[in-house]
């Protein structure tokens, strides 16, 4: 969520308020369902960060396993994010041909294909 608020120290106090107001607006405006998707996204991101840190700090020896694990989190993340954007009612105008049900079906197929490749690459 918070990406680069460490650098703008030269800014005025306004950087704080965009973040805070962003958080407030977010909690107010998003539906429960989207929040649920977002928790899954956060979990995936955390898992990916852990794997990446392990790879960088400890060893990257079974590089294919690292790539498989990391790619599974990243891939799942983007698929879920896509699902989120497709399900979000605000985006209905963009997705004329994809109903929310179809969106979920696409998400499921994509995830299954992703996991198939991940497990093939893992070992």
């Amino acid at each position: 969520m918070s990406s680069s608020n460490s650098s703008p120290s030269a800014q005025s106090t306004s950087p704080q308020s965009p973040i805070l107001s962003l958080w407030k607006a977010y909690t107010q405006n998003t539906s429960d369902r989207l929040k649920f998707i977002d928790t899954f996204l956060v979990f995936l991101m955390a898992s990916g960060v852990i794997q990446f840190l392990y790879c960088v700090l400890v060893t990257n020896f079974p590089f294919n396993a690292f790539l498989a694990g990391f790619a599974s989190t990243v891939g799942q993340f983007v698929l879920t994010a896509s699902l989120r954007s497709q399900v979000n009612p605000e985006n209905r105008s963009e997705f004329k041909e994809v109903s929310p049900e179809r969106a979920f079906a696409d998400f499921a197929i994509g995830s299954i294909v992703l996991h198939f490749f991940v497990f093939n690459f893992l070992g």
């Binding site: 899954f40 852990i50 392990y54 060893t59 694990g69 990391f70 599974s72 989190t73 991940v118 893992l122």
Partner: peptide, 15 residues
């Protein structure tokens, strides 16, 4: 040595 990755991948699928 690759257990975090296995854990990560499996947890992703479970999730």
């Amino acid at each position: 040595a690759a257990w975090p990755y296995y854990a990560g991948a499996i947890s992703t699928s479970l999730g």
